[in-house]
Design a protein around this nucleic acid. Sequence first.
RNA 1: GGGAGUGUAGCUCAGCACGGUAGAGCAACGGCCUUUUAAGCCGUAGGUCCUGGGUUCGAGUCCCAGCACUCUCACCA
Length: 486
Amino acid sequence: MAKQEERSKYEHQRREKLARIRQLDSVEDPYGGRYDGTEAAEAVKSRFRDGDETQQARCAGRIVLLRDIGKLVFITLRDRSGTIQVGMSRKLMSEQWQLTKLLELGDIIGAAGQLGKTKTGEITIWADSLTLLSKSLLPPPEKFHGLSDIDLRYRQRYVDLWANPEVMERFKKRSAIMSTIRGFLESRGFLEVETPMMQTIAGGAAAKPFITHHNSLNMDLFLRIAPELFLKRLLVGGMERVFEINRNFRNEGLSRQHNPEFTMLELYQAYADYNVMMELTEEIISLLVKKYCQGSRLQFDDKTVDFSQPWRRATYSELLKEYSGCDIEDIEAVRARAKELGLDEDEMDDVVVINTVFEATVEDNLVDPTFVIDYPAALCPLTKPKKDKPEYAERFELFIAAMEIANAYTELNDPAIQEENFRIQLRGQQESMATMDSDFISALKYGMPPAGGLGIGIDRLIMVLTGAANIRDVILFPLLQPVTES
RNA sequence: GGGAGUGUAGCUCAGCACGGUAGAGCAACGGCCUUUUAAGCCGUAGGUCCUGGGUUCGAGUCCCAGCACUCUCACCA
């Protein structure tokens, strides 16, 4: 297409420049090689001592700004840590001056020389050595506005990351947060494990799975929708505290809060219950807020979220009463409310109507962190029912900024009840998906210790902690439609 | 799937209400410049105005259809 031709014209110009560079005696290979002894740009700037003219520095990175003043060229170099200015003068560069004048935005270079300050006070490497490490053949985005076409940003994240520094910052923060979470759990004796992503039975949640095929075994496999049933097998095996930071795959719609593959922290602690999980959840997220955010009141989209502790704990039925006005025991009132809300409730079971009304009326109001506790047992096939009120289950969900962030249970460890719950669940499903995980039931029969289990939606948590309103802004390569050839 | 919005130069955006043959900044190309900070100055080049129809003497602009993207609703443990 025309756009492709236009682009190739710019590429053509750069290729011609590359050809000229190859002819220079001072350039061995315009795609460079190992380049040792570099320092992070920001580290160089912070060790700089004004007035000391014996300081040397050596950095490598991408040219993001270039100011050519004739016999003097100033370059802003971006590396993993930030930026530093490199100054090049014809006098100092001597035989490498020709190469200097051929540098372009986007090229990756290494530069070394004396560290100093310019008239305006900018810390600068006055280069006496220049190495071209990679010639860039495509023009970079606009240097001030960066790349803002949202589709292009996701498609070409490799450009987005260096053209928009705040994007790099957000993903660095995501890495740091993951590291903190791992450290926290390890300090409490949790073991990090890996369980199958390809499963013969897609269990542990109710979602449509992706299906794939193994050729030599000639069998279909599901990409996991949750690791839950495998992690519980590890409890049976004697791993009393386990966690997995895992990718789940769900074949459902996409939205600001849903990507088909998403990251979940799932953990199990033997001899604990959902109250222990609640304390742990509040502790770990509060630690992250303290460590990675400014203050305890965070802006998210058009909302302000107050993380001050303690967080609210309210039962499912209390919240239903508070926001829908309905008593959970009065099913006629709940059905009437559903009609008012325009929900098609005729075909639904009572508990589904209740939950639909709950989602429609309550969830949007849960902006500050709120533990919703004690769900109707019929919604929770993997959860231990409450001793005094078996129609409710020992489950909580944590909502922050009206998003479901965490989900936890006192795990059901009675194999007979578990098997019965599976049977009830299977009745409502299509034949193709309906498979009893009898091996899991066998595991329970050997005896699973009572335990608390917790799942935290990592992507959504990162969204809240970094103020990103779209899940695609916290996933490096979100799923997109392929570009159509035309 | 429904609704709303967007699509113009490599990038970031004007122009469209009221139709008259395409604009700016950055980037590029050619000059000038030894202290710039989104460097500056002079000059040059760059467009299937998403695609296809229609209305019109004439469409980037109005109408219809399609495509892509964004937001939103629905669906979604």
